[in-house]
Simulated assay, not measured.
Amino acid sequence: MGIKKSSNYLSPIARIFDKFSRQQDVSLIYGEPINFENRKVLPVAKINYIVGGGGGYSSETGNSLGAQGEGGGGHISVRPLGVYEIDAEKVKFKPIIDLKFTLTLVAVFTLGLVWLLKRAR
Rank of each mutant, 00 (worst) to 15 (best):
M1K: 06
M1H: 07
K4N: 04
K4F: 01
K5D: 00
S6W: 01
S7M: 09
N8M: 06
N8A: 09
Y9A: 03
Y9F: 12
Y9E: 08
L10C: 10
S11K: 00
P12N: 13
I13Q: 13
I16E: 09
F17Y: 05
D18K: 15
D18M: 12
D18I: 10
K19T: 12
S21V: 05
R22L: 10
Q24D: 08
D25I: 07
D25S: 06
L28M: 15
I29Q: 01
Y30Q: 07
E32T: 15
P33Y: 01
I34K: 06
I34N: 01
N35L: 09
F36S: 07
F36C: 06
F36R: 09
E37L: 11
E37Q: 13
N38H: 10
R39N: 08
K40V: 05
L42H: 04
V44T: 07
K46C: 09
I47F: 12
Y49D: 07
I50R: 12
V51C: 10
G53D: 05
G53R: 02
G54R: 14
G54W: 01
G56M: 05
G56E: 04
Y57P: 01
Y57D: 00
S58W: 02
S59W: 06
T61K: 12
T61R: 10
T61G: 01
A67L: 10
Q68D: 14
E70W: 09
G71M: 11
G71R: 04
G73D: 08
G74P: 00
I76G: 00
V78E: 04
R79Y: 10
L81H: 06
G82W: 04
G82Y: 02
G82N: 03
G82Q: 02
V83D: 04
V83R: 03
Y84W: 15
I86H: 03
A88D: 08
A88W: 00
A88V: 07
E89H: 03
E89W: 03
K90H: 10
V91F: 00
V91Y: 04
P95W: 04
I96V: 15
I96G: 08
I96D: 12
D98P: 05
L99N: 14
L99W: 10
K100E: 10
F101R: 13
T102S: 11
T102K: 13
L103E: 07
L103T: 03
L105W: 13
L105P: 00
L105F: 12
A107W: 03
F109A: 15
F109Y: 12
T110P: 07
L111Y: 03
L113R: 14
L113K: 14
V114E: 09
W115E: 07
W115R: 08
L117Q: 08
L117V: 11
L117C: 08
K118W: 11
R119E: 15
R119G: 15
A120K: 15
